[in-house]
Amino acid sequence: MLTFVISEALSNLRRGGRVAVSAVLLITLSLAALGAFWVLSLNLGRAVGEWRDRLRIVVYLREEPPPAALGEFLQTVEAVGGVQRLRYVSKAEALRTLRQQLGGQASPVEQLPTNPLPPSVEITPSPEASTPEGTRALIQRLSALAEVEEVQGGTEWVEWLAQLQGLLQVIGLAVGAVLALAAILTVTTATTLVLHARREEMEIMRLVGASEMVIRLPLFLQGLAQGLVGAAVAVGGLGLAYRFALPTLEPLLAVTLGLPRAAFFSPAEIALLLSGGAVLGAVGGLMAKGGRAA
């Protein structure tokens, strides 16, 4: 029975001709579009995550606290709430860091009569304080401290990036959904044409007592195969595009988003795309109407 069902599905695919090929192409297009937006969103998501992790608030102080009072001052800062970690950067350490950063061009710094850099406290906000509202409130509380000259830091642009990621996801889903619908309809048409061409066989099958499952299963398998092939071509195409674009893409991502490496789909995500294609095809195959039901 299984041999019969599989051989019928293969024969349906052969008989589907150009319409069957169109269906595969449409599934490829819909999943490639969906996949492309997904990869973009995946990388933006990683950038958002990394930037959220790197988020720091720098509290510049009016003057360096005396060493005996430093511990108490840092406790005061911690007590404002929303602080996960803090690190005091003295004037001397700030100057050392500046020298290191300037490297060979540090000579003007050496000529300064006094150290102009302010002492500061670098604060890593707690997860609750990492949201735009949380960060704004933390900055307000820190600014209210008497020893504080200025507070710098914020999450606005990270949140903008997150919003862009969300927008990309929505656009990707919308384009993918429209193309997926078109793909389902094309598979349905391809299968209906096969059914029309095979109506005599279907009639005989029903007449001799074949169950509806035996009649419909080859159509389901036909759609499933079309979907799988379409999805595999889409994943393969995206993989090739990713590989070719990588040398150009990675430096760009490093400069704009600070991502050292571009990410592609994980094996689980590839399996999800392939399953998506198979489902699209199978739904198209099952929706086909033709031949007279019992």
Partner: peptide, 14 residues
């Protein structure tokens, strides 16, 4: 029942 029609038809040649 609709699902039993194939069984009936297996008993009949046409």
């Amino acid at each position: 029942r609709r699902s039993k029609i194939p069984q009936l038809r297996r008993a009949i040649g046409v």
